[in-house]
């Protein structure tokens, strides 16, 4: 097949998958969140259960005027949402939905993931600075500090996985979780990493991921009761939609990363090799939705921390713990 055609096809499929996933996540957040708050949430849009609410919201945002503050740094202001969106979409390029269902088979998949996901910090900082708004500025700076601080425990948590799997390829990591650990009564048992020594790094990864996503309890960059909307304060219309979609795409993205690294990705116990490409996406989807639900659940239960508490948590707790975790796992890896 023509390489360009293949590329275009992959892009279109990926875009559709990612945007659908984000819209579904938005819908679940609207609906599940409402029920957690003793409301019913969207109800009339789309005829039943308000399923079309995210689409209706999107259509509304598209109609809005694309405003920029008079003193904004226009080119940067306009570019920022694209940077965030690109970072969000980039995550999905390397996440394997099945042994062959992957946008780009990279040997350094983990490396690419960490690089592309931290790219969004740049977009956020651009948005905060270029808006010419003091709230945006504070929000952008908070975001920058937060994203950089939580990049480190995130990477350290992933390093532990890489050490255990012995590869940086995401497919390799999934395969490592499929490998037979021991035989119990004639049945070959394979366990995901979360059950074989990666529990601590899984929690560190999730905490750091929520902080990277800047969602409650770590949503200080947008903290609507302090900074109105943080770096998003001045954005409207299509550009706000891009930030918004980007946020939810990243929620799905990070959940997919966590599912791949710790929960066995597209693999499941007793799944025959031949079925992996067919059932793989569904299995991954199941794991991702469980993680996404937990993230939404947390958002509707907890308040937010303070910026300095967040920093001290990263530097004083998460980083030392994950360093110790790496050491322990390395020792086990060498010993066994």
């Amino acid at each position: 097949m023509n390489i360009w055609l293949e590329l275009a096809l992959t892009l279109v499929v990926m875009l559709v998958v990612v945007l659908t996933a984000s819209l579904v996540t938005i819908y679940v957040e609207l609906k599940a969140g409402s029920h957690m708050q003793a409301r019913i949430g969207p109800y009339y849009a789309g005829g039943r259960w308000g399923w079309a609410q995210p689409l209706a919201d999107g259509a509304k945002f598209l109609q809005k005027e694309d405003l920029a503050p008079a003193k904004a740094d226009r080119p940067v202001y306009r570019l920022a949402p694209f940077v965030v969106m690109m970072s969000a979409l980039g995550i999905f390029a390397v996440i394997p939905l099945g042994p062959d269902l992957v946008g780009a088979k990279l040997d350094l998949g983990v490396y690419f993931l960490l690089a592309i996901s931290s790219f969004s910090a740049l977009g956020v900082l651009m948005a905060g600075w270029s808006s010419a708004n003091k709230y945006s500025l504070i929000g952008g700076l908070r975001a920058a500090a937060q994203l950089i601080a939580y990049e480190i425990p995130l990477i350290l948590a992933v390093v532990a996985v890489v050490i255990q799997a012995g590869t940086m390829s995401l497919i390799g990591i999934v395969d490592a979780q499929q490998a037979t650990l021991f035989t119990l009564g004639g049945i070959e048992v394979a366990l995901p990493f979360i059950l074989t020594g990666q529990l601590v790094s899984f929690f560190i990864f999730m905490i750091a991921a929520v902080a990277e996503l800047s969602r409650i309890p770590f949503d200080m960059p947008i903290a609507e009761s302090e900074l109105t909307m943080g770096y998003l304060t001045e954005y409207t219309g299509i550009r706000f939609t891009m930030f918004f979609l980007g946020e939810y795409a990243t929620v799905v993205g990070f959940s997919a990363i966590a599912a791949t690294l710790y929960l066995g990705g597209y693999g499941a116990p007793f799944l025959p090799e031949s079925m992996a490409n067919v059932a793989g996406p569904a299995i991954l989807l199941l794991k991702v939705s469980a993680l996404v639900f937990v993230i939404i659940w947390i958002r509707f239960t907890w308040p937010r921390l303070r910026e300095d508490q967040l920093q001290s948590m990263a530097w004083r707790w998460l980083i030392p713990i994950s360093l110790i975790n790496i050491a322990v796992i390395a020792v086990f890896k060498v010993a066994f």
Binding site: Q37, P217, D219, S225, F300, W302, P303, R304
Partner: peptide, 12 residues
């Protein structure tokens, strides 16, 4: 709690 970022106590 809303000022602290928790929106659920509000509704309850």
């Amino acid at each position: 709690p809303l000022e602290l970022g928790a929106s659920t106590p509000l509704m309850h």
